[in-house]
Nucleic acid binder design. Structure first.
Length: 490
RNA sequence: GUCCCCAUCGUCUAGAGGCCUAGGACAACUCCCUUUCACGGAGUAGACCGGGGUUCGAAUCCCCGUGGGGACGCCA
C-alpha cells in the first residue's frame, strides 16, 4: 500500500456531475503524479436517494473518462477490489456501529430521543430569537445505562449524537488549497452520527472510512468545508490523525450561481452524448481551478499527470464556459489520428442512420476534409450527410443561389458533363477540375456564379469544403441524381 | 440571522512586494490566406471590487466595507 492515497467518494444519486468529475480528476492526477493509490468509495447511506443504477452509471462515466482506480467498486462487475473494503458504505454498517458503540461507551456520544417535531420547534424558536439554530438535546446528560433501559422498554428508536466538547475553542487545519482555516467549536451543536434506523450519517462514515482506508489526501468540493469541523471533532474523539484536506472551489453557471440543471448540461454523460471527447472534457475541467506550470492550454492526460501539483489549485469559484470547452474539444479532436477519429465518430454517424463507404482510404480523405469544421463528434453527422446516398435538402441560401440567372445553365451543363462520365463510380480530382473548366468556358460563367450553383447541386448549400476534394468523395450516381433533383427532375 | 470561504479582462487564468505602462487562452472585432465555408496566420479592444493602512515601493501583506458563494439536516 502506498503512503499517498486519494479517493473519490460519490453518492449514487443520479448522474456523475462535471464538478464531481473534476474532483475525481484532481484526486486521480495527484495519486498518479506521486505514485500513490486512487480509491473509489461509494457513499450510499442515503437510502431514499441512492440507487444501484446511479452507481453503475457513475462508474461507467468514470471509466469513460479514464480515471482508473486501484481499489474500489469495479465498474463492470460491481465487485469490490482492494484490501480495505468493502468499498460501499451500505456494506460497512457493522463497522460504523462498532465505532459508534465505542464513542457511546467513552461518553463521547449519546443516545438522543428527540423527535423531528421537537427539533423543528427548537429551530423555529432559535430563528425567532436570532440565535444560531443548533440542536440542544435534553438527553445529552443521560447515562448510557438509562438510555439503554429506555431503548429496551421498546417503542423508541433513538439517534446517536456526538457530544460536542463543552469547552469552546478553535479548531484549525491547514487546507491544501486555502491555507489555514479556523472554526470556533461552538459553530456546531451536537450532531447525529447514527440515524434512528441505524444508518450512519455522512460525516461519521466519511471519517471512519478515510481513516480505515488510510487516505492521506482528501480532495473534495467546497461545500464540505464547514463539515470539516465536525469531522475534525470525530477524528479527535477517536484519537486518529487527520488526512490532509483540500477544498475545491465550486463550479458556477454563467449567472455565477452554482452550476445546476437549469444551466443546461451538468452531467458527464450528457457531454459524452453531445460529442465531446473524454480527454477534452478532462482537459477543460482541469483548467477550471488549476493551471499548467507551462501555461499549456491543451493537455493530454499524460501531460496533466506530469504537470499536476496541488499548489497550483485556485481557490476562487470558476464559471463553466461551454464555448471554451468546445474549442478544447476541437483541438483534441483534430489532433487524433484519422482511424481513431473515425472510430470515435462512427457511433454518431450510424446512430443518425448514415450509410458510408467502409473503405479506409475514403475515410481518411473525408476526415482530412471535414475535421477542420468539426468541433464535436456530433458535427460529423451534418458534414457527412451529403456524402451518403440520400436526396438533398436545399437551404434557403441554396434557393437564392439557384435564383441567379446563370445558375440553371451551369447545373444543366454540369449534369451533362457528369453523364458523359457516368460509367465511372467516382470522379477524380483532375476529372472534376476538367469538368468545371469546361462548364466555365461553355457557359461563360466564372467565380462564385460558377462554383456556388455546382456546390448547391452537390451539397444542397452554397458553402462548405472545397469542391475538388469533396466531389471525389461522392459516388457518381449520387452526383447525377442530385443534379437532376436540383433541376426539378426528381 | 450566525459562521466559513472567495474576489485580476465578458469567461478561464498567470501573478508568492519591485521583473506589471499586469502576461496567456476562449469569446468579440479587424486584416491576411482563400473563387465560398472552415482551418491557419497577424493584429485591436478589454481587468487588479471600494476605502483605509504597512512599506522607499502593493494586484500581491493587514483591516474595514461591498459583492458573490457555501454551511447551519436523522442529505451528501
Amino acid at each position: 500500500m502506498n503512503s499517498i492515497r486519494t479517493r473519490f467518494a460519490p453518492s449514487p444519486t443520479g448522474y456523475l456531475h462535471v464538478g464531481g468529475a473534476r474532483t475525481a480528476l484532481y484526486s486521480y492526477l495527484f495519486a498518479r503524479k506521486n505514485g500513490g493509490d486512487f480509491i473509489l468509495r461509494v457513499e450510499d447511506t442515503d437510502e431514499e436517494r441512492s440507487t444501484e443504477d446511479s452507481m453503475r452509471m457513475q462508474l461507467a462515466d468514470l471509466k469513460w473518462l479514464g480515471y482508473e482506480y486501484q481499489e474500489g467498486v469495479d465498474a463492470t462487475t460491481l465487485k469490490d477490489r482492494g484490501p480495505v473494503g468493502p468499498y460501499r458504505q451500505s456494506q460497512r454498517l457493522s463497522i460504523y456501529r462498532e465505532h459508534a458503540d465505542r464513542l457511546l461507551k467513552e461518553g463521547k456520544a449519546y443516545y438522543c430521543f428527540l423527535t423531528d417535531d421537537e427539533i423543528e420547534r427548537q429551530r423555529e424558536d432559535a430563528m425567532k430569537a436570532g440565535r444560531p439554530h443548533q440542536v440542544v438535546s435534553p438527553y445529552r446528560d443521560w447515562s448510557l445505562k438509562d438510555a439503554e433501559k429506555k431503548i429496551s422498554e421498546g417503542g423508541v428508536k433513538p439517534t446517536v449524537r456526538f457530544r460536542v466538547p463543552d469547552l469552546t475553542r478553535e479548531y484549525t487545519f491547514l487546507d491544501l488549497v486555502r491555507g489555514e482555516v479556523k472554526f470556533p467549536s461552538d459553530m456546531v451543536g451536537d450532531f447525529v452520527l447514527l440515524r434512528s434506523g441505524g444508518m450512519p450519517v455522512y460525516n461519521f462514515c466519511c471519517v471512519i472510512d478515510d481513516a480505515l482506508m488510510k487516505i492521506s489526501h482528501v480532495l473534495r468540493a467546497e461545500e464540505h468545508l464547514s463539515n470539516t469541523l465536525r469531522q475534525l471533532m470525530i477524528y479527535e474523539a477517536f484519537g486518529w490523525a487527520t488526512p490532509q484536506f483540500g477544498h475545491l472551489s465550486i463550479i458556477l453557471g454563467p449567472d455565477r450561481q452554482k452550476l445546476s440543471k437549469r444551466h443546461g448540461a451538468t452531467s458527464v454523460n450528457e457531454y459524452r452524448e453531445r460529442g465531446y471527447l473524454p480527454e477534452a472534457l478532462s482537459n477543460f475541467i482541469a483548467l477550471l481551478g488549476w493551471s499548467s506550470p507551462k501555461a499549456q492550454e491543451i493537455l493530454s492526460m499524460k501531460d496533466m499527470i506530469e504537470q499536476f501539483s496541488l499548489d497550483r489549485l485556485h481557490s476562487a469559484a470558476a464559471v463553466f464556459d461551454e464555448a471554451k470547452l468546445k474549442w478544447v474539444n476541437a483541438q483534441h479532436l483534430r489532433a487524433l489520428p484519422h482511424d481513431e477519429l473515425w472510430r470515435r465518430a462512427e457511433p454518431f454517424l450510424t446512430g443518425a442512420g448514415l450509410k458510408l463507404p467502409d473503405d479506409p482510404d475514403w475515410r481518411d480523405r473525408s476526415l482530412q476534409v471535414f475535421k477542420t469544421s468539426m468541433e464535436l463528434l456530433t458535427d460529423a453527422v451534418e458534414l457527412y450527410r451529403p456524402l451518403a446516398k440520400i436526396p438533398l435538402t436545399l437551404t434557403d441560401e441554396a434557393r437564392e443561389t439557384m435564383s441567379w440567372p446563370t445558375s440553371r445553365g451551369v447545373i444543366e451543363e454540369w449534369r451533362a458533363q457528369l453523364k458523359a462520365k457516368s460509367g465511372e463510380s467516382y470522379l477524380t480530382e483532375s476529372e472534376f477540375s476538367a469538368i468545371q473548366e469546361s462548364v466555365k468556358t461553355n457557359r461563360k460563367v466564372k467565380g462564385k456564379e460558377l462554383f456556388m450553383p455546382i456546390r448547391v447541386a452537390i451539397l444542397g448549400k452554397p458553402h462548405g469544403a472545397e469542391l475538388k476534394v469533396l466531389v471525389p468523395l461522392i459516388e457518381m450516381s449520387t452526383l447525377i441524381e442530385r443534379a437532376d433533383q436540383v433541376l426539378g427532375f426528381v
